[in-house]
Design a protein around this nucleic acid. Structure first.
Lengths: 233, 233
DNA sequence: GCATATTTGTCCGTATGTATA
DNA sequence: CTATACATACGGACAAATATG
């Protein structure tokens, strides 16, 4: 009975996900993909007429999709000027890492109250990253690294914190492509992820908190250095 | 020279603010006012035809305004069903306070690095609240209380944290009106605001951190109790 | 459960205002 | 300064989904 109800619930949820796909959502998904993949570079203009014709949707629909992406911080809407791919300043990068230290730090310090499952998930994500690295799947190493930090913030046990982390990491993707290759950026952090996961599993939250802060400061410095070399703004 | 340049900059910024006001923005402002004032109760449907005619704008414009308000969490957009005033569950209220403890706590612990100006602003806001209370301006007491918590979170020195706090407090406004009168809800916290401001000014951040946590837990409990009595969901 | 009315989702054409070469 | 391109906003249309009796 319980399992059958679960099936029904899952099916209902899945169909709900399918039904949710409006044209606006699909268009927003397309643009989001183009942006996070780096095909649309920061600062690029997104003329609604051109893009709506390219996507075979009306300008109204495209405008609503723009509002969604603006909400996610991937594009900026300048009144009477149009929509542009967001370009992060150095101050933005610094602020994103500032907030990441707050949210991920809160997650680490809350690990005891969060219970064993979320902590185990952190370890599982690290293991996935190590497996990907061993097999040379460097793109997967990058996604595992991102998931690791989401899992750490998820220790807060807060849907809103999860949302904020998703937004922050999406903003960072606008900058990641200045690093030559993603694997070179994410790869070296695998051992530190491992150490943090072990500290969390062992319950040494104080050390984990310190390590995480140093970790994020280092990552910010590395990204800032690479970004400064390209973007003198 | 410096002052003249400041005048010019201010004037330019002000005119920029005026020029920025699009129809979509103005409509969104109107609806936001109606919602936060409690004239539009949570769960109420917002038919786009009715509202667009009432505001003398086209349906497309109203739909874009809805996207803005959905971004702020004040309304929810259900595909093929319409837009409704957001109604917070008890889990939502708990989560908002969870995030507030994280953000405001981070602000308190960062007070030393934040410097004297942001700390002074916290004290100024408390003083403003005390003045309003002495003169019986209870509505102003409420806004001063909200500004107090924004000032505490602002100690993080992060624009993104400021944004998050604005969003969280906007969500809470959807619930505040279940408290009989705002003054009764905000008034009793004035002494605690004062104590926190004094602790911050004195640099006793450890005590301030503990006080703030207890403060927010109490406020959450009070709000939750009142909310449970009305909303059995 | 069905037929109907209402509402939303999406598209199109057009007029006006704004920015930029 | 003019001309062009573009964004803003309106209003109407129709199909599809939902709500209603």
């Amino acid at each position: 009975m319980t399992t059958q109800d679960d099936w029904i619930a899952n099916l209902k949820a899945a169909s709900g996900d399918l039904a949710r796909s409006s044209t606006v959502t699909r268009v927003a998904d397309l643009l989001r993909q183009q942006i996070t993949d780096g095909h649309l570079v920061p600062g690029a203009a997104l003329p609604e007429k051109l893009l709506s014709e390219a996507a075979n949707v009306s300008r109204n629909t495209m405008r609503e999709a723009f509002r969604l992406l603006a909400q996610e911080g991937l594009v900026v809407h300048e009144f009477n000027r149009g929509v542009f791919v967001r370009s992060l300043t150095l101050a933005d990068v610094a602020d994103v890492y500032r907030v990441r230290r707050i949210l991920e730090g809160a997650g680490v310090r809350n690990a005891a109250e969060a219970g064993p499952e979320p902590v185990a998930r952190v370890g599982a994500v690290v293991a996935e990253g190590e497996r990907a690295a061993a097999e040379g799947r460097w793109a997967d190493v990058g996604t595992a690294d991102i998931r690791f930090h989401q899992a750490v913030a998820a220790l807060c046990g807060s849907p809103r914190v999860d949302d904020m982390m998703r937004h922050l990491l999406a903003e960072l993707r606008l900058v990641f492509h200045v690093m030559g290759s993603a694997e070179r950026f994410h790869g070296p952090y695998l051992p530190r992820n491992r150490r943090l996961a072990d500290l969390l599993a062992a319950g040494d939250l104080t050390t984990a908190d310190q390590e995480l802060r140093a970790y994020l400061y280092d990552a910010e410095a590395q990204l800032t250095a690479a970004y400064t070399a390209v973007e003198p703004a």
